[in-house]
Design a protein around this nucleic acid. Structure first.
Lengths: 349, 349
DNA sequence: CTGTTAGCGCATTCAG
DNA sequence: CTGAATGCGCTAACAG
C-alpha cells in the first residue's frame, strides 16, 4: 500500500542505502545520484516510516503530556507553552487528557512507554495517597529504564528520590501577596473555596493560603472552608453551601479562577453584590479573569512559561538539578474592596 | 537498554512466539505456560514496543489533530471531544498547534504521515487561496495513499472531490436567529467585527451574517465592518478603529466570542455602556460568555460534540458519506437590548 | 562515492 | 499447544 524506501531505490536505480543517505543528508552522495533519488521521492510521494526509524534508534522523539482536561484554560495555557517549544525542537507532542482519573493516567503512561516517548510531562494535581504514590513510583522507574526523561509540572514528586525534573510555582509568595492585600483592606471574616481534598494542588494551595492569612493575623475559620474540584460549577455549589450554612464573611478567596467565577455567579444569584457586599479572589489569572465585572483580583501564574520551561528542562541535559520554581504575582483588579459597614451589618442580619 | 519480548521469553523459558501469543491473547496457550510468561513480564517490567508493532501492521492507530491554538477555548472544546472519544476507542491523540500557519500545518501533516497515523483531523479555518488548496489536495492524496482517514472539522474541503469526512456547523441557521433577534429589537445600524479575511471561517461567518441580516431587511454597511483575527485583542483593536472612524452604530456583532469580549472592553474603555449604549453579540458560546457582565448573547456551537462526531465518523466505515452539519442555537443573555433614544442621539452627536 | 549485509522488536506463517 | 523461521522498513557497519 505505502511507498517504501526500496520502491524509491528501484525507481531511481540505486540501492536502498543510497536513498537513505540522500534522505538523511549526512553522507556524501554524488550530485547526479542525489537528484535522481530526489526526483523518485517526489514522483512516488515517498514519506519515511517513523516507526521503522524508531525501531533502530530505540526512541521515537515523541513528547508525551498527561493532563487533566485540555479544555481547562489552566492546562490549555501550559499545553500551549509545551507545544510551542516542542515545535522549535521539531518534536511531536502527544496530548493525553486523563480526566483526573489515576487509572487512566497510568494507562496513558503505559501507552507512552509503548511509544518509547523521549519525554513525558505530567501536569497538575496528583492524588496524595500512598497507594498512588507507590504505583507512580513504579511507573517512573519503568520510564527511566527505557531512557525516557520525566518532568513534573505543577506537581510534587511521588517520593523524595524520584528521578525527574520539576517546574512549579511560588504558591506561598502569591498567597502572601494576596492575603496581605485582602487583610490590609480590612477583611477578617474570609471564606475559602478549596480545591479537591486528597489531591496535591488542592491541599497545597489551601495550606499556603491558611499560612499566609495567619501571618497577616487572621486565622482561617474551618467553618468558612468549602471544597470544590476546580471547575466553575463547583465554585457555584460551594458558595451556595456556604450561604446556606448561614456563615458570615466579607470575602471569598478561591483556590483557582474558575471557581472564583462560579463563586461570583452564586453570590449574585443570592442577591449579593461583588465587591460591595462580598469581595472575591482567585488564583491562575486565566484570560476571563479580566473580562468579568468586576475584574477578578487574582494571583498570576506564568502558565505558558511553565510549559516552555518544562520541555526545555527535559532537553537541557542537567535534567535533575534543582527544581525550577516560577515566580507568581498579585494582579489587583476590582473584585476586592474594603468591607463596608453595610455589608457587615447585612451579614449579621 | 529496554526489555524486549525475547528477554521475556528467555526468562520464562519459552519461545518469543509464545510470549507474543500470551500478550495478544488471541491464541490458545497452556495455562501453566501463560502464568510463567505473565510472571516474567511483571518481573522484567516489559512493555511492548509500539513501533515494532506498527511496522508489522502498517498503521499505528494514532489520531492526529491539527488545530490553530490549543489554548483557544474554541479549539480546546473540540479537542476535548476528540480526546474523550479517542480514549474510548483506545486510541492515542497527537495534538499539533499550527498557529494558523500553513507551512507548519503542512509540516505537521508530513509528520503524521511519517507516523502512519490512522486518522487525521483538521480543525478550524483554512486559507482560501488556490495555492494552499492545491498543496493541501496533494497532502490529502498522500494521506489517503497510506490508508489514513481524513476528517475536516469546521472547514470546507480543499476541492469538491476530496476524500474526507466532514463535520461542520449550521452557521446560517445561527446567523439567522441572531440577526432576527437583533433586528427585531430595533437595531438597524449594526457594526460587524469579522474574522480574518482570506480564511474560510472568517469569510463564511461574515457572508452568512450579511445574508441573515439582509433577510431581516437590514443591509450590512461596509463602512461598519472591521476585521480581527479571532483573538480577544483583535476585538479590542477593531472596535477602537470603529470608534475612531466616527461611524455610528447601536450594535456590534462579532464573528466569535473572544472578539466580542474584546469589543465589550473597548466599548467601555471609550465610556460607552453595554448594552445600554451599544449591544454586543458573539458566536461560539465559550464558557466565559456566561461570566461577563452583561452576559454575552451569542450563537452556541456544539464544539465538544463536533470533536466526538469527527472521530466517530472516521471510524464509522462509511466515512465519506454526506457531511455532518451540527445544529446551532441562539443563546440570549443580556448584551443585547433595544437601542435607546439616548444612545441614538449620542451616536449622532 | 555506492552496494551488500545484518538486525532493530515483533507477529505471523508453517511445522511439529 | 509450542517452536523456528521469515519479514515489516529502515540505517549502520562493512566492503568495494
Amino acid at each position: 500500500m505505502a511507498v517504501t524506501l526500496t520502491d524509491v531505490a528501484a525507481r531511481a536505480g540505486v540501492s536502498p542505502a543510497t536513498v537513505s543517505r540522500v534522505l538523511n543528508g549526512n553522507y556524501p552522495v554524488a550530485d547526479a545520484t542525489r537528484r535522481r533519488v530526489e526526483k523518485a521521492v517526489r514522483d512516488l510521494d515517498y514519506v519515511v516510516n517513523a516507526h521503522a526509524r524508531a525501531l533502530l534508534h530505540a526512541t521515537s522523539g515523541l513528547v508525551g503530556v498527561i493532563l487533566n482536561d485540555i479544555a481547562d484554560p489552566f492546562f490549555g495555557a501550559i499545553a500551549r507553552g509545551i507545544q510551542a517549544t516542542a515545535a522549535e525542537m521539531r518534536r511531536l507532542v502527544v496530548l493525553c487528557s486523563s480526566s483526573a482519573d489515576s487509572s487512566s493516567e497510568f494507562a496513558y503512561i503505559e501507552v507512552l512507554r509503548r511509544q518509547r516517548a523521549e519525554v513525558v510531562i505530567l501536569v497538575g494535581a496528583a492524588p496524595e495517597d500512598a497507594a498512588y504514590r507507590r504505583e507512580m513510583a513504579g511507573h517512573v522507574r519503568g520510564l527511566r529504564a527505557q531512557g525516557a526523561r520525566l518532568v513534573l509540572c505543577g506537581r510534587p514528586a511521588p517520593n523524595p528520590h524520584t528521578a525527574a525534573a520539576s517546574v512549579s510555582f511560588d504558591d506561598l509568595g502569591g498567597a502572601r501577596a494576596l492575603a496581605s492585600h485582602v487583610v490590609s483592606l480590612g477583611h477578617s471574616a474570609v471564606a475559602y473555596v478549596a480545591g479537591p481534598e486528597g489531591r496535591t494542588t488542592g491541599t497545597q494551595r489551601r495550606l499556603v493560603f491558611a499560612k499566609a492569612l495567619s501571618e497577616c493575623g487572621v486565622s482561617l475559620d474551618p467553618a468558612l472552608v468549602v471544597a470544590g474540584d476546580f471547575s466553575r460549577q463547583s465554585g457555584v455549589d460551594a458558595v451556595r453551601r456556604l450561604l446556606a450554612s448561614g456563615a458570615s464573611f466579607t470575602a471569598v478567596c478561591c483556590a483557582n479562577d474558575l471557581m472564583a467565577l462560579g463563586a461570583m455567579a452564586a453570590l449574585r444569584e443570592a442577591g449579593l453584590r461583588v465587591p460591595e457586599d462580598v469581595s472575591v479572589t482567585g488564583v491562575d489569572d486565566v484570560p476571563s479573569a479580566q473580562d468579568v465585572t468586576p475584574g477578578l483580583t487574582t494571583v498570576r501564574l506564568p502558565l505558558e512559561e511553565a510549559g516552555r520551561r518544562s520541555l526545555a528542562l527535559a532537553f537541557s541535559g542537567h535534567d535533575f538539578g534543582s527544581p525550577v520554581v516560577l515566580p507568581t504575582e498579585l494582579v489587583v483588579r476590582s473584585s476586592v474592596v474594603a468591607p463596608s459597614a453595610a455589608s457587615a451589618r447585612r451579614k449579621l442580619a
